[in-house]
């Protein structure tokens, strides 16, 4: 390049002003942190005082109830199924959204902004709120929970899929274009093979997260093992609670195993 090099960063008076502002900023952040701890009544003493009650509670859980095992097993299966169905629905909706929302291949500016907005909107609202809304709309049970998982997963999956698409080797897309291929053919060969492993990996990861989330969603009446947990807690049936916690633990470990082994096989 023959043009002059761009100017060096400015020095002089503005430098010390910047430093003063930076210091002021740090002080403000520090003050906010201290105030926040006061506001949440953060107190090691109170925690220490509560410890005996905690030990007592855990003690009352033993031994875990065996009577409820069949019920809990059934509820666990429901949780697992909610997560599977919710995740699959989310993936099916997120893939087309992501193709429209990926900057490098978006076919139109309007569709790009619309799909980005849908993704941001579903991300901005916690799944618990979706669950509350759907329970109000369609009643108690696994269906509102599944809906909540599906809709709230779009935010994450759509965003991650779109990012995966934006990171592809664009040379393969250009190669397809240079052969005169139709835009759909270019998508099917230039983009899809490159993002498939990432999409499957992220979907499995989300399934993993959705298992955990569906436990929480049960607490607002959206089915599954969480609903069982809520019931047992309300009735002070602590041995049942322990059985449920063990089941949750086992499901989560199992799902992690399954998803990581599938992921390994893909790479």
């Amino acid at each position: 390049m023959s043009s002059k090099s761009p100017g060096l960063p400015k020095t002089g008076g503005s430098g010390s002003l910047r430093r003063a502002l930076k210091f002021l900023g740090l002080v403000l952040i520090g003050a906010f942190l201290v105030q926040s701890m006061l506001a949440v009544q953060f107190s090691p003493v109170v925690f220490a005082q509560g410890l005996p009650d905690l030990v007592n509670l855990v003690g009352r859980m033993f031994p875990p109830s065996l009577e409820v095992v069949p019920d809990v097993a059934l509820a666990s299966l429901e949780t697992l199924q909610m997560a599977v169905v919710g995740t699959i629905i989310a993936a099916l909706l997120s893939v087309p959204l992501a193709f429209l929302a990926a900057q490098n291949i978006a076919p139109s500016a309007i569709l790009y902004h619309v799909s980005r907005s849908i993704i941001i909107f579903t991300r901005a609202i916690p799944d618990l709120i979706f669950a509350l809304i759907f329970v109000a709309a369609v009643g108690l049970g696994p269906f509102p929970g599944t809906l909540a998982l599906a809709i709230s997963s779009i935010g994450m999956l759509g965003k991650l899929y779109a990012e995966a698409i934006e990171e592809i080797d664009f040379g393969q897309v250009e190669a397809l274009r240079s052969t005169g291929s139709h835009p759909l053919q270019t998508l099917a060969f230039g983009v899809v093979p490159q993002v498939t492993p990432a999409i499957i990996g992220m979907t499995l990861y989300r399934w993993d997260i959705n298992i955990r989330n569906s436990v929480v969603l049960g607490l607002v009446g959206a089915g599954g093992i969480g609903f069982q947990l809520l019931t047992s807690m309300r009735l002070f049936q602590y041995p049942e609670v322990l059985t449920i916690i063990i089941f949750v633990f086992v499901i989560i470990l199992a799902v992690e195993r399954v998803s990581s082994s599938i992921r390994e096989r893909l790479i």
Binding site: G171, Q172, E174, A175, S178, G180, P193, Q194
Partner: peptide
């Protein structure tokens, strides 16, 4: 344009094959 591109095969420095097929 697609018809015209078909008549001009393009070979890239980085080959640009679809790797997974």
């Amino acid at each position: 344009l697609r018809r015209a591109r078909k008549k001009m095969g393009f070979v890239f420095q980085q080959f640009n094959l679809v790797k997974r097929i």
